[in-house]
Design a binder for these strands. Structure first.
Length: 650
RNA sequence: GCCACCGUAGCUCAGUGGUAGAGCUCUCGAUUCGUAAUCGAGCGGUCGUCGGUUCAAAUCCGACCGGUGGCUCCA
């Protein structure tokens, strides 16, 4: 006999008795009418579900309202269905793909035989408002495979999805008013819950993310619980745009990309060149202290070298085409611009016999390499064709791997965490489909990286299949101003190239042993890291990085000589100073220095000129000035620069 | 590479078939100023490129180049 009553456990640990077959909605009603109205979904033993599903005895439950971030995902998922409902009404023949929630919003993929234009989005948004107003309940139904196929017989994309479902998987469909979708759910109780949404843009997207398949039209939107949250999100997008490195790069005259030179090729203007220069100097300081040796290798090499390394033909699509031979050389000698430095560093390693005592050998080079990235992937400084890797190759013994990875994770923390104050994420990327080497090699390599991470006690994500074709790697990821994720530092183990190049060292046993190799970059590339720093600091760099560190501002022409003396003293001390000689008001000069994010302004008026002092105004500090003797000001700046301080020293 | 959108002065942008505009920047003149924009004048554009439609094209059409947002791919 089935029990006539069930018990559920509430978040506070108390239990609540409900009639058998009671749903989440019933529970909410039993607790209170306010909650019944606010309830959007329910968490059952950790899984988020619809309110309409019956609860079973003994489960731990928690009603989700708009206070719960997980409810926001549900709302956005339901918003995607509302979008599809509207599109199906306007375009009855629309094919429908997938429509999941994503960070800050949702999307849905369609095929209406033509792209969506801006007018379409407006019309769809209007129609969505009607769907919301109609307040259609979201009804869930479990169906058999045959039934599902029957229901979606006119939706080839859905049929394909059904075929991919595992035999024992429960197939559910959701209906809201006129629209039926194959969907796992969960959803909010009805379309009326979706009040604050906005369609953002349409874009092409390959069906199932496969570029060999048809291209669908994806519509992106965002949805929130309150009008304020929606408005805040729009404001956030605008703010992000302001710190975009391409915008600040122009404002501060840091770099340009010009059609005459070519896409993805960065021209570092004098201000940007300072960033580049300081970053190089910094990373060289760091690694030279840690036993690295600098090398320099050519930008072009014989193509043969990349054949031997295995880059061709695997990497050929990303390499610029071969160049012909030099005069007097045989026709079949061809050259390539290098996309990577490893083969040449390997040849340096292999240029003499190596003892086990010499290892690890760490060869570093901040080198310009060129990769023929697909045009649509280029993005300011964050994805370019000419890149400066802060590259190094470490040649070591098997027993040194973990120690070396330890040290590398240390460097990463010193650079990312301590020096720039960055939060970063670690990914462990494992073997991809397109790869060199045996599975046994990969097994060993993946284990080595993982155990180093574990012993350091670091948290990391698994990026299955995300490895390079020659080995697994630990990647450091960060987000740009508009939320896109990019890879920065990378630590890669390579068991493949040492085989191809027969790299050896002589062991204590006087026998040859195969050398292990690691590739690593800390910044990743100077370009990407600079672009990222511009956005991270919104152009307000720490003093040591700032292209202009001080602007000396005479109040009137009468103090020009004194101001020039201050400027000269700063320059002599190695400070990048700029003397603002323009015949403008002090207000104007200050405003100009502030908008250019210059760290310090040194105001020289009558009083300062007579006393041999400066009135120092720090960036963003407003009227809070400090009057200092010139020598004291110089001394402080030199200290702040020398220590590469993240924030002004008091 | 694929899809959509965009390309007007150094920068940000207005200008939907009939003689190319504004603000800022820059230059010059006046002003000599105490912590976020002093006033005035001037310079500056074959409207991305090439082709087509038209009496007439920044404006309409096509191709190409470049950019933006996605997709795919990657540091």
């Amino acid at each position: 006999m089935p029990p006539s009553e069930i018990q559920v456990v509430l978040p506070d640990g108390s239990t609540k008795a409900l009639p058998a077959g009671a749903t989440g909605a019933d529970l909410a009603k039993a607790i209170g009418p306010g909650l019944a109205k606010a309830a959007l979904a329910i968490r059952v033993n950790g899984d988020v579900r619809d309110l309409q599903r019956p609860l079973s005895d003994g489960v731990k439950v928690s009603i989700l309202t708009d206070k719960d971030p997980q409810a926001l995902d549900v709302l956005r998922h339901s918003s995607a269905h509302v979008l599809a409902t509207a599109v199906r009404q306007l375009f009855p023949n629309a094919q429908i793909g997938f429509g999941p929630p994503i960070e800050d919003g949702f999307y849905y993929d369609f095929d209406i035989g033509r792209p969506f234009g801006p007018e379409d989005l407006e019309a769809i948004e209007k129609k969505m408002a009607e769907v919301v107003k109609a307040d259609y309940p979201f009804a869930r139904e479990e169906v058999s495979r045959q039934e599902a196929k029957k229901r979606f017989k006119d939706d080839p994309l859905k049929l394909e999805r059904i075929d991919d479902l595992k035999q024992d998987e429960i197939i559910s469909v959701y209906t809201d008013g006129p629209f039926v979708d194959l969907c796992r759910g969960p959803h909010v109780p009805s379309t009326g819950k979706i009040k604050f949404f906005k369609l953002l843009h349409a874009a092409g997207a390959y069906w199932r993310g496969d570029e060999r398949r048809q291209m669908l039209q994806r519509i992106y939107g965002t949805a929130w619980f309150t009008k304020e949250a929606l408005a805040q999100y729009i404001t956030r997008l605008e703010e992000a745009r302001k710190r975009d490195h391409r915008v600040i790069g122009k404002q501060q005259d840091l770099f340009s990309i010009q059609e005459d030179v070519g896409p993805g090729l960065i021209m570092w203007h004098p201000n940007g060149a300072i960033l580049n220069f300081e970053l190089r100097r910094f990373i060289e300081d760091v690694i030279l202290e840690r036993g690295y040796q600098l090398v320099y290798t050519p930008n072009v090499t014989r193509e043969q070298l990349f054949l031997r390394s295995g880059h061709l033909p695997l990497y050929a699509a990303n390499q610029f085409p071969a160049m012909g031979a030099g005069e007097g050389e045989s026709e079949d000698v061809r050259y390539r611009v290098k996309p990577m430095n490893c083969p040449m560093h390997i040849l340096i390693y292999a240029s003499q016999q190596r003892s086990y005592r010499d290892l690890p050998i760490r060869l570093a080079e901040i080198a310009n390499v060129y990769r023929n990235e697909r045009s649509g992937t280029l993005h300011g400084m964050l994805r370019v064709r000419g890149l400066s890797m802060d590259d190094a190759h470490i040649f070591l013994r098997e027993d040194q791997i973990e120690e070396e990875i330890f040290n590398l994770l240390d460097i990463v923390e010193l650079v990312m965490g301590k020096t720039f104050g960055l939060q970063y994420r670690l990914d462990l990327a494992t073997r991809p489909d397109k790869k060199l080497g045996t599975d046994a090699m990969w097994e060993v390599a993946e284990k080595a990286l993982e155990s180093a991470l574990k012993r350091r006690g670091l948290t990391y994500r698994m990026d299955v299949g995300g490895g390079a074709f020659y080995g697994p790697k630990i990647d450091i990821k960060f987000n740009d101003a508009i939320g896109r994720e990019w890879q920065g530092a990378t630590i890669q183990l390579d068991y493949e190239l040492p085989e191809r190049f027969q790299l050896e060292y002589t062991g204590a046993d006087n026998k040859p042993h195969r050398t292990i190799m690691m590739h690593r970059a800390i910044f990743g590339t100077i370009e990407r890291f600079t672009g990222f720093l511009i956005e991270h600091f919104a152009g307000a760099f720490p003093l040591w990085l700032s292209p202009v560190q001080v602007r000396v501002l005479p109040i009137a022409d009468g103090q020009m000589d004194a101001a020039r003396a201050v400027h000269e003293a700063l320059r002599k001390a190695g400070i990048r100073s700029h003397l603002d000689e323009r015949s403008e008001t002090l207000n104007y000069k200050i405003r100009d220095a502030e908008t250019h994010k210059v760290p310090y302004m040194a105001v020289v008026g009558q009083r300062e000129a007579e006393a041999g002092s400066v009135a120092v105004r720090a960036r963003g500090a407003g009227k809070k000035q400090e009057v200092l003797p010139v020598e004291e000001f110089v001394r402080r700046l030199v200290n702040e620069v020398r220590s590469r301080a993240l924030n002004p020293l008091v």
